[in-house]
Design a protein around this nucleic acid. Structure first.
Lengths: 219, 219
DNA sequence: CGGAGAACTCAACAAGCGTAGAATTCAGCA
DNA sequence: TGCTGAATTCTACGCTTGTTGAGTTCTCCG
């Protein structure tokens, strides 16, 4: 039994030809983080999807956390994408942003990155930090050009409220009919909201901004 | 060494007096599910918070999943809460709903239930099912009284987009300044959005509702 | 052609998980 | 008083996880 024939034995050691496994691992990681979140995704599962031994993942990326950072940082540079949205002019800002975001989510890589970041950020503080930076970099820089300095951050986080809520309901929770609605219908429905958050009257009772504590998540 | 003195030994068996541990376990479970999500919360951790052996949790609730269901189903009956919101009249519907929801989230138990459901639903399909039912029961029943039958579900899921997005940004991701804003400021800013989703003109291009596939999560 | 280092796998570790079964102590009813 | 059953803990099984170290095979440069 167990003849160590050349064709049958599992091959250890380096493969011939140029290697693309590094990128394959990243793609598998993006998919699994998007589907299962940070804690739910396993290095063993990612390695299996990439057709590779789990130890190789460590060889390339060190720890699970560094793999996550590498996987989430790849394809999108949101400020560039949204930056071009500014050219449409102040009055069509909401429409352009919603359309741009939905278009971005039409690309599998970008969708996986966004969902992965969102799924992970909900239970992992480190990922939440990344998402906060993402929101701040992408939205705030766009808003700052149109809102007065004092309101800019408040307006930006209101926009985040609607955009992240849209992604959550449409792609993560998949609540119908929003989950299956066309991009154009969603643009028509949601763009006015974003437009008002950016340039409209928010009627804030600007007395004392009464602070109230929020929940503290995992360390 | 190790004298089995009466005062020193760990006590097994039933305690004297009437027991409140059953409820203590539920409270600990709510808090842990809210902080860590479904997979992240551990029965051992919940038991420790309740000052109890992990096996007792199983004795009472069977499996982790049934514990989750029990913990998430307790305090809120959302249709009752929102039902009273209807009395304010059609024109103030958005304001009343946003104010009611924010008031609800001022109660620790209700906040924990909502956050727990949200955190769990993002990575757990069973919890997502519960949250969908929650949204459908709470929001749709409210909307149906004011929107024509054809649009009601679409309007309800748009409202879910904004309300869940608000909860996500304010309590889970804690993106500033929304995380620390006063309830009243948020009502002033967000109520018009909800009002428009409920009773306003959504300008939907009602051609063919072009279906596009959404991501498939974990089984 | 030879050596260095990169790519890759194997096997194993310590830890943590959900869960199960048996043992012990108490409450309440006959 | 005695018995049944509920409340409670102990111990342990089997599994999965992230991570590590050693060993093997290839590529590439001198």
């Amino acid at each position: 039994m167990s003849p160590p024939a050349d064709a049958m034995r599992r091959r250890t050691g380096r493969r011939s030809g140029e290697s693309t496994t590094r990128e394959a691992i990243l793609e598998a990681a993006r998919a699994r983080f998007a589907d299962h979140g940070y804690e739910g995704a396993t290095i063993r599962g990612i390695a299996a999807d990439a057709g590779v031994d789990p130890a190789l993942v460590h060889h390339f990326y060190g720890t699970k956390e560094r793999l996550f950072v590498a996987a989430m940082r790849f394809p999108i540079v949101p400020s560039e994408v949204l930056g071009s949205a500014l050219e449409a002019g102040r009055d069509r800002l909401g429409e352009t942003i919603v359309r741009t975001v939905l278009g971005l989510w039409g690309q599998p890589d970008a969708l996986e990155q966004t969902i992965g970041l969102l799924r992970a950020a909900v239970t992992n503080e480190r990922a939440a930090e990344m998402l906060r930076g993402f929101v701040k970099g992408a939205i705030l820089s766009t808003v700052a050009a149109f809102a007065d300095e004092e309101d800019a951050e408040y307006r930006a986080s209101l926009v985040a409220t609607q955009i992240l809520g849209l992604g959550l309901v449409r792609f993560v929770l998949r609540i119908e009919p929003v989950a299956s609605a066309s991009d154009e219908d969603l643009v028509a429905s949601i763009a006015p909201t974003v437009q008002r958050y950016l340039t409209g009257d928010l009627q804030p009772h600007r007395r004392e901004p009464s602070r109230r504590p929020a929940r503290t998540p995992r360390g």
